[in-house]
Design a protein around this nucleic acid. Structure first.
Lengths: 113, 113
DNA sequence: AGTATATACATCGCCTGTCAATGTATATAC
DNA sequence: GTATATACATTGACAGGCGATGTATATACT
């Protein structure tokens, strides 16, 4: 973990939804996917991860069900609802807008290029 | 204000420092500059702004002095120290890294292009 | 004279997301 | 029998952002 989590704050839910919009998954797997995709630069803390799941479910963006593993630890799978897909697409648009804006605001002084 | 401030959270200090690295300024002016640069999409709340100034000063990134206005409201000017300039340059690098990472993590599912 | 608006700084208390610490349980490898 | 990996979950503390509120000066309008 080398990326400051303060800078990812606010995108946690979007990152999780990006995973769930492509296929049902569960906490541990999503976190592994994030670690791999970031080449070990970033991972979600468990408290953050499960807290985000709770919020997403409360908002109707995801639904959960227990996997039917006959061996190993049990898994709680999450599935994105249509509302969740909409939320994700909207979050992506917001990210693009925020990214553009931050780039502009940071460049104000013309110091960085 | 149409941009969710949750997405800017964590960049407040960087945005302020971008202004102060190019020239000394004061709270009200910086906020106006942000509003203009963002075409009215974003502005800092005063409590956020002055809270950030306090932290930046506590960390030695900026120093402050009262302006010598003979008319109108008094202004507290802020000046970036060398440590502050370093902090800003480092923050810019972190932003670039975070931006790249978020783009990658959000693209995981290959849903957005 | 009174009111509204713009400029300008500042603080208090609340809310929310993150995290360290801790706990539970199953399975495999040494 | 002990360490490691898989897997889920909660609790309490902390930090940043924000609504509300307060102070003060100057200008414009009525």
């Amino acid at each position: 973990m080398s990326i400051t989590s303060d800078l990812i704050r606010g995108h946690t839910e979007t990152i999780i939804m990006a995973n769930l919009c492509s296929h049902d998954s569960y906490g541990y797997e999503i976190n592994k996917a994030i670690q791999e995709a970031s080449d070990g630069q970033y991972e979600l803390k468990e408290a953050t991860l499960y807290g985000a799941f709770r919020r997403l479910e409360e908002n109707g963006y995801i639904v959960s069900y227990w996997g039917d593993e006959t061996t190993g630890a049990r898994r709680r799978y999450y599935h994105s609802t249509d509302k969740g897909k909409e939320f994700f697409e909207n979050s992506c648009k917001e990210w693009i807008a925020a990214k553009t804006l931050i780039d502009k605001l940071i460049d104000t002084g013309g110091i960085m290029k």
